[in-house]
Simulated assay, not measured.
Amino acid sequence: MNFFASSGFLDATAAVYFKDRPATIENVRIGDDVLRLLVVDGKKIITRLLFLDYHEPLAAGEIAGPVRSGLFADRVSRGVIDVDDRSDQELAPFVDWSRFNGFDHYYDRLLQRHHGLMRDRERRGRALVSRFGNLTFTLDDRSEDVLPLVRQWKGGQLRSIGLPDFFTDPRTLAFFDHLQQRGLLTTSTLRAGGRLVSAWIGFIHQGAWSGWIFTYDPALKKYSPGHQLLVRMLDASYQLGHREFDFSIGAQDYKLLYASHGRVLAKIGNPSAVRATMMFARDALLQRRPDLFAAALRGKWALQAAKRRLSLAIAMRQS
């Protein structure tokens, strides 16, 4: 059972994104598969949220109790392929540590496939040390400067490419705080001479290390601070005996560089006519006018923020 079907993740989702609404965790059959999902208000089946990356169908032994019927879900794992066999499929890339006899074996594979690039990033790491001081990797860094800088760096990156900054939604930090208080959040960092240079916010669940946010100080881009952190995280993941390092959804180039395999993600079931029309319009707009798609997302987030402010104002007046 992956993290997105775990009680910890689903409870946090209910507490933050569906606050004060009745929510239960239920098994839901969609087509031939059963997923473990959040059901809100006794009827609304939640299959997609900002931090719900992908679904994995439950194994037969994981299905207990009643099973309700659902219509549709996307980003459902349909199997695993070698990352070199990808085509136009939607993937969640990962490193399968069972394929390697040691971290050196894995790193040798990276050197064989991307020798010039890897050596260049090693050189940049040495330059970072020379300029700012020794590098310190922390697997779970609870220092007070981490989240503010992550918010600044990632928010700036999202805005620079025309995407909405999800940190403007107060529920984002509330969600991370909820997970952290329950020991379910892992915030990994790299510092150079004490200065924070890159960070990863994610989780470790049942031998799989994954996450949502990977960011770095843009002023230090020429030193490849993301790589300097990631290679240390991958080493730590292997040494800790993890079964995999999961880059989650999105087949970005940097993920494909480090990954050995990818989960193929696809839709299951049949969406309602209204949802099918909305999905078609969304996909068409994303393909033909990504700028308008990003603007629509920003408008949606602004409307949601306005609704939350209005609800708060009404509540304050009534109190």
Rank of each mutant, 00 (worst) to 15 (best):
R99S: 14
F214V: 10
T168P: 02
T187H: 04
S210P: 07
A192W: 02
R171A: 12
D85T: 07
R182Y: 03
N101Q: 13
L111I: 13
G79T: 03
Q89E: 15
L128F: 06
D85Y: 03
A208K: 11
H205A: 12
F166M: 10
L135N: 04
P170S: 08
E90S: 14
P93T: 07
Q157P: 01
L185D: 09
T138S: 07
I201S: 08
E90V: 12
L147Y: 07
P170V: 04
G193Y: 08
W209L: 14
F175N: 01
R121N: 10
D141F: 00
G211P: 05
G156S: 03
Q206T: 13
G116M: 06
G183W: 03
R78W: 06
S98Y: 04
W212S: 09
F72I: 09
L158F: 15
D84N: 12
Q181T: 12
G207V: 10
F214N: 13
R126Q: 13
R123S: 08
F167M: 06
D169Y: 03
Q157R: 13
D82A: 14
R151D: 01
G116Y: 06
K154Y: 11
S87L: 06
D141L: 00
L173C: 08
S143P: 00
P164M: 07
G133Q: 08
T138M: 04
E122T: 07
S130N: 13
G207I: 11
H205Q: 13
G183N: 02
M118A: 06
D104P: 10
N134T: 13
Q181E: 10
M118D: 03
L135P: 09
L135D: 07
T172C: 11
F100P: 05
N134F: 05
F203L: 07
L149G: 00
L173T: 14
D74F: 12
L184S: 08
D85H: 07
A73R: 05
I201V: 15
D82K: 05
L139D: 03
Q112M: 07
L117C: 03
F176R: 01
D120M: 07
A192E: 00
S143H: 00
F137Y: 15
R109P: 04
T187M: 14
L158Y: 15
A127V: 02
G202H: 10
G125T: 05
K154M: 03
R159V: 08
F94S: 07
R159G: 08
L71A: 14
G194S: 08
Q206E: 15
P164S: 12
G207Q: 12
F203A: 06
D165Q: 10
V83I: 15
G155L: 09
D88F: 12
V76A: 10
V146P: 00
